[in-house]
Amino acid sequence: MTLEGPGAPPTVEEVETGAFLWINTELPLLPNTDCARALEAVLPDEGRRDILIRVRATGWASLQQQADLRQAAARLGPDFAHFDFDTNMLGTTYDDADLDDIDKAGALRLAANRLKEGTESETLSAEERAVSAGALARLYAYVKEAAE
């Protein structure tokens, strides 16, 4: 900062002296978004080793999209000095194709159906619905992993 004298406006020059870049970014998702590509698009291309980043996913995504997203995050995260991936604000959409991915019928499908009902229930508390949603997402992820 340069001060020319009493009453005169100061001249201010911003000078970067840091070594690390800290970023907080949002990743808005829609049910038809290609999640892996969307995640890559919000990440900086260069200097990742010196970047600490938090990506906050928002909007809605299906179980399949969320599985893709987690996979992409697990692949890209280690590039960074710190990578914090937050999906707490991301809602889940459920369609029958997702449940079919778990199983067409049988015990797993029954469990999946019950959990889906739990997520949509009007009598359960928001907390209980969230537990159902989390369990369903995990079940989906396990089945997908086992199939690969």
């Binding site: 900062m1 009453g7 406006p9 100061p10 201010v12 911003e14 970067e16 002296t17 840091g18 070594a19 690390f20 870049l21 800290w22 970023i23 907080n24 600490l52 980043i53 938090r54 710190h82 914090d84």
Partner: peptide
Amino acid sequence: SAIAHIIAAAPNRIGSSMDGAVSA
């Protein structure tokens, strides 16, 4: 303006008011 309000802070956690600042 005639009053200088100057940013000169280093972020310590992501989500602080200094996000995006290049800092140590």
